[in-house]
Design a protein around this nucleic acid. Structure first.
Length: 659
RNA sequence: GGGCUCAUAGCUCAAUUGGAUAGAGCGUCGGUCUACGAAACCGAAGGUUGCAGGUUCAAGUCCUGCUGGGCCCGCCA
């Protein structure tokens, strides 16, 4: 798809070629390589390029002189009359003033492009695996998870629009002590509920923090959801198979039972644990669906250990052990100091001099404990080997900022795996290195209500869940909660801490810009509805876009022209928030244009049919762009807003707007 | 102690990844609806980009050193 920016780049590229041949420029640029930007100040032209700066050094002259010499070639290259004038400004910027024909062409691009306007396609798209959330299935998601979830999901959408082939993945940590703890916690509730009469069970379980059963472990999970899991299990009749009186969880053996590679598991204990994490995953998936988030893959840690994944086909191989063995053989892993019993752990040599500095760890980390059980890190090594084996060009992990210390060792692992695979003669591993993995760290979210912090803690049992937040933030419709939560998370960069205030999130003022943007879209839709009601037809072919002459219309067209560039920048920088800020800017421009139309003869629909049709085209183009941008953030683009009416008790009721 | 990260208007955040005179919203003050939706618009006030150096045509952005906040440094996951 050609856009105004690519056409201007084409003109500039042709000009550099001619200038280079004439000996004026030291090199010629390819179209894609021409830097073009929209100046902050309108007086600096519609578009500008700083290409003379980058060439000045090679030309051994100053940028200003170079630009002066470049001017005639640029004018000559504009064969289609997109440019009205060019000038050299400041220390050597080339400022481009577009002709009416030039800037209105962006409007036609947008209308013609429709839903695809702003989307990019690549002949050989880079393959990306984007892993995010991956919360342990030991409790419901909270707002912090929500931020990572929304960011990851929006990034996937933005990168797809930017021409990448993106798969998303949730890594299920269904192995280890935390899962065993979950199983044990649920088991105690199952025993208590089995001893409770049928009709009293619901009451027993109710509340955020129900009264715990006797002998409940000190470090067990105490949230009300544990009791709910147990109740679900009891309802399924799962308890009849349990040896409820047996001291199974107190046995030293039960720890081993929930770790891979160890025998002696009691089938019933194991069943509780499996049941619990699977139900938690189902609940997590449901909560994510509230935010319109789903994954292309759910990857089970159990499958890496060669354990039955409990869902889907079984994998016989213990990939974790295999990875460790191969790394040890290649010298990337080594035996550590023996404990009192003479047993040695296996460590990964993350401090190796062979690992480039940015990927090097400060400490060697244990991968296999002295008792033979692999650590979480060991599984993660196998997991990332698995990811790379699947042929992805980029691995992107969205992690909580408290995991930042984990990043170097993971990158070091990828470096080591690449080196190992190459030594083994694997051609796919030719370019595996630490920078194949990108990590996006998400800073913490502080949940507030009217400026007062609400405490959260995973173990405390009284945390506020993501599902609760979404429902509380919903004003007009259930969807509005999703839209507001998503937009709030997407209006800031991930690497700064975020205060999420429930009261602010409910507001429909500019505190909470999602409604400002949606209102803009609804207003645009309203204009088109009205035009249609009046029987005014507009088509690109039959419309004279040169009748758009006002400076505000020019600015709107330039914003429309910029949209595909914004998508590309956001995708490449992994910054979905750029889309959100673009939306706010675009809507601000439109609202201003609209309001001025009331007093200054800029009404879209007027007595002048030809002008009306041209302006309707502009409005349609803008609506398309804003709709596409909202879709990219996973926020709905309403054709009309539900009007909020303040009721007597301060409650907010909704009714349909009747335009 | 070592490391990561952040610091921009009173508050919450942007700044086309090194570009021209650092911009929005909230809050404050003052204006605008019997015509396409006032959930909107217009205007005013508000800044030595934490501090000090350095790199170059150009630094909020890059490098060094300070100051201050958050986080990590486990045979947990």
């Amino acid at each position: 798809m050609t856009t105004l920016y690519t056409r201007i780049r084409g003109v500039l590229a042709a000009a550099t070629t001619a200038a280079h041949e004439a000996g004026v420029l030291p090199e010629a640029l390819a179209t894609d390589a021409v830097p073009v930007e929209r100046p902050r100040q309108a007086s600096h032209g519609d578009l500008a390029t700083n290409l003379c700066f980058t060439m000045a050094r090679a030309a051994k002259t100053n940028p200003r002189k170079l630009a002066d010499g470049f001017m005639p070639f640029l004018r000559a290259a504009d064969v289609n009359g997109l440019i009205s004038s060019v000038d050299v400004a400041g220390p050597g910027f080339v400022n481009i003033h577009l002709s009416n024909r030039g800037w209105t062409s962006a409007v036609a691009d947008a209308v013609r492009g429709g839903h695809d306007y702003g989307r990019h396609t690549a002949a050989a798209p880079e393959r990306v695996l984007l892993e995010f959330v991956s919360a342990n299935p030991t409790g419901p998601l909270h707002v912090g998870h929500g931020r990572g979830a929304v960011f990851g999901d929006a990034l996937a959408r933005v990168m797809r629009a930017g021409g990448y082939a993106v798969d998303t993945e949730y890594y299920i940590n269904n192995v280890g002590n935390q899962i065993a703890k979950l199983g044990e916690s649920v088991w105690h509730w199952v025993r208590a509920l089995s001893a409770t009469p049928d009709d009293a069970r619901d009451a027993r379980v109710e509340g955020e923090k129900p009264v715990l059963p006797e002998d409940f472990p000190e470090d067990g999970y105490r949230g009300g959801y544990i009791a709910e899991l147990a109740l679900a299990l009891v309802r399924e009749g799962g308890d009849v198979h349990l040896g409820l009186d047996a001291p199974s969880w107190e046995d030293a053996a039960w720890w081993a039972a929930h770790e891979p590679g160890r025998q002696g598991a009691r089938q019933d204990d194991r069943a509780v644990s499996d049941f619990a994490w699977q139900l938690m995953i189902a609940r997590i998936a449901k909560d994510l669906a509230l935010l319109d988030i789903n994954f292309t893959h759910w990857h089970s840690e159990r499958s890496l250990h060669g354990l039955e994944p409990a869902t889907g086909a079984s994998e016989a191989m213990d990939a974790v052990q295999a990875c460790v063995t191969r790394l040890e053989r290649a010298g990337w892993c080594f035996r550590g100091e023996a404990d009192e019993a003479g047993r040695t752990p296996v460590l990964f040599k993350g401090t190796s001099e062979d690992i480039p500095k940015p990927f090097r760890d400060t400490k060697d980390r244990v991968v296999v404990r002295t008792d033979g059980r692999p650590t979480y890190f060991a599984a993660d090594i196998a997991y990332h080997d698995n990811k790379l084996q699947r042929g992805y060009d980029h691995l992107i992990n969205v992690l909580g900022a408290d995991h930042h210390g984990y990043v170097p060792r993971l990158k070091g692992v990828i470096h080591a795996l690449g080196s190992l695979r190459r030594a083994e003669g694997d051609p796919k591993a030719a370019r595996w290195s630490g920078d194949r993995l990108e990590v996006q760290l998400m800073q913490m979210v502080a949940l507030l209500r009217d400026g007062e912090p609400i405490s959260m803690g995973k173990r405390s049992g009284d945390f506020v869940t993501l599902a609760h937040v979404v429902s509380e933030v919903s004003t007009a419709s259930p969807q509005s909660g999703r839209d507001a939560v998503r937009f709030i998370f997407l209006t800031r960069k991930p690497d700064a801490q975020l205060d999420f205030d429930l009261e602010v999130a409910r507001r429909t003022s500019m505190d909470n810009p999602v409604y400002y943007v949606q209102y803009g879209h609804a207003r645009l839709a309203s204009i088109l509805r009205r035009a249609q009601a009046q029987g005014i037809d507009w088509q690109v072919g039959g419309v004279s876009l040169e009748l758009l002459t006002h400076d505000l219309e020019r600015q709107l067209a330039l914003t429309i022209a910029e949209w595909p560039e914004v998508v590309l920048r956001a995708a490449r920088a992994r910054e979905p928030h750029k889309i959100a800020f673009f939306l706010m800017d675009a809507c601000k421009q439109f609202h201003s244009y609209f309001t001025q139309g009331k007093t200054e003869g800029l009404r879209v629909i007027s007595d002048d049919l030809a002008v009306t049709r041209a302006r309707l085209t502009l409005i349609a183009a803008l609506k398309g762009v804003i709709g596409n941008a909202l879709a990219m953030l996973g926020v709905s683009a309403p054709e009309q807003m539900q009007q909020l009416v303040e009721a007597d008790g301060g409650a907010v009721a909704a009714r349909e707007g009747d335009v």
